[in-house]
Design a protein around this nucleic acid. Structure first.
Ligand SMILES: [Mn+2]
Ligand SMILES: [Mn+2]
Ligand SMILES: [Mn+2]
Ligand SMILES: [Mn+2]
Lengths: 218, 218
DNA sequence: ACAAATATTTAGCTTTGTCTAAAATTATTT
DNA sequence: AAATAATTTTAGACAAAGCTAAATATTTGT
């Protein structure tokens, strides 16, 4: 697969949320920051290669084979992200762009050894699970912060939005993966909430609460 | 620079042996495993970009800017080779192919941090020097084994040919960088020599002797 | 010095991946 | 059930990087 084909496969995979959903040409175009006509051309090619199922005007999905490729790419992307943070002192908002390049390096041994070097990590710096070599991974039971009822608490295990602005916001407000968060109060009107985190009590907007994953503890 | 442009720049650099020599279209074509006509097209483009000086029928050389790029690529290539050997347990005959890909990853921070992570190595697994961030490196005073006079000895510090077959040959014969080699005898007729290495006395062909670098000790 | 051999460039074609503009299909309103 | 709007595809073009075959320049041998 070429670099470009691989990025399309990943886009289709992510838009389908990991399940094997059919996604629209326009959606892929938006995700990839290209034009719908370019997507049409590419998905035709992917279809011919046995990577995708494409029905004109109906959308595109990945074949079994395509999903395997997607999972391998996701695995590589996330392992590199762990490497950058753990070994090269990158912060979690800097890794995506570089991993986007590194994920395309072709060498099975490289990935296997990297995995070993990192101690077979289960999640990437954003809390996203790392597929095994065979493409398996258990998706964690986690809840968005805005769905956690008042009085319940949990451990922060992931972010839904992993864009640099959001990640930097969390850094600035000293919210990190692993922290325990208790929901104190919720404001119906704007969806904002009060939380307790590490002795501090802070008020958090709906935009933040809908992008933080917790693993409920009690 | 695109991946392809970068590979051409590296090829021109290596053919010019690091000095800023003018090299021929055919030489570049052979090195890159492409056709001379493709090289002509590319060097024209590199010339327009200010990376190379190209005179039709006369050959091509790198500009100052082009040399900077070349040195940065060599730096990245060799740092990645060190990483693969030191951290991921690759053997020295497996690293080149992967480094050939990794050298094109764009991220200044990545290179700086990798350098630090590796403890600022001075040479790659084949004994080749790693340019500093500014593009400087001292070239070691080393001699090819076939040029070492009888009775002199030295430490094995590098290989001229770093192709897998040659490197595997060295592994098989337990000759590694760092080993001390004493020249016992030379055969004028075929250039073969007798050496002593780690208590062993072995006979070595001219092809091997002309591809092993020693740093003379006495 | 000239012919032959070699090296290099040019011209024209191919593939990949992209784009714009126009045409076709599907979805949504009234 | 049309009419309108939105989505998607097609047609045609372009840039990058490569190739083959033909033309041109340079080098070499006599
Ligand atoms: Mn990518
Ligand atoms: Mn991630
Ligand atoms: Mn390369
Ligand atoms: Mn090397």
């Amino acid at each position: 697969m070429t670099l470009s084909e691989e990025d399309y496969i990943k886009a289709i995979y992510h838009l389908g949320k990991g399940e094997n959903t059919t996604v629209s040409t326009n959606a892929v175009a938006e995700q990839m920051d290209t034009k719908p006509s370019s997507v049409t051309d590419m998905v035709k090619k992917l279809s011919e290669k046995g990577v995708a199922n494409y029905k004109p005007y109906k959308g595109v999905s990945l074949t079994e084979y395509g999903q395997k490729i997607a999972l391998s790419l996701v695995r590589k992307h996330r392992l590199w992200e762990v490497f950058l943070v753990e070994k090269l002192d990158f912060s979690w908002d800097e890794v995506h762009e570089v991993a986007e390049q590194l994920e395309h390096i072709k060498s099975e041994k490289l990935v296997d050894q990297l995995d070993k070097h990192l101690g077979f990590p289960q999640v990437d710096p954003h809390g996203d699970p790392i597929p095994s070599k065979k493409g398996e991974f258990k998706k964690a039971i986690k809840k968005l912060l805005n769905e956690v009822p008042i009085g319940k608490s949990g451990i922060c295990v992931g972010v839904k939005d992993s864009s640099p602005p959001f990640l930097k916001f969390l850094d600035k407000n000293k919210i990190a993966l692993g922290d325990t968060i208790l929901v104190l109060d919720k404001e119906e009107f704007d969806g904002s909430i009060d939380i307790q985190i590490k002795e501090r009590t802070i008020h958090i907007s709906s935009q933040i609460a809908t992008n933080l994953y917790l693993k409920i503890t009690e």
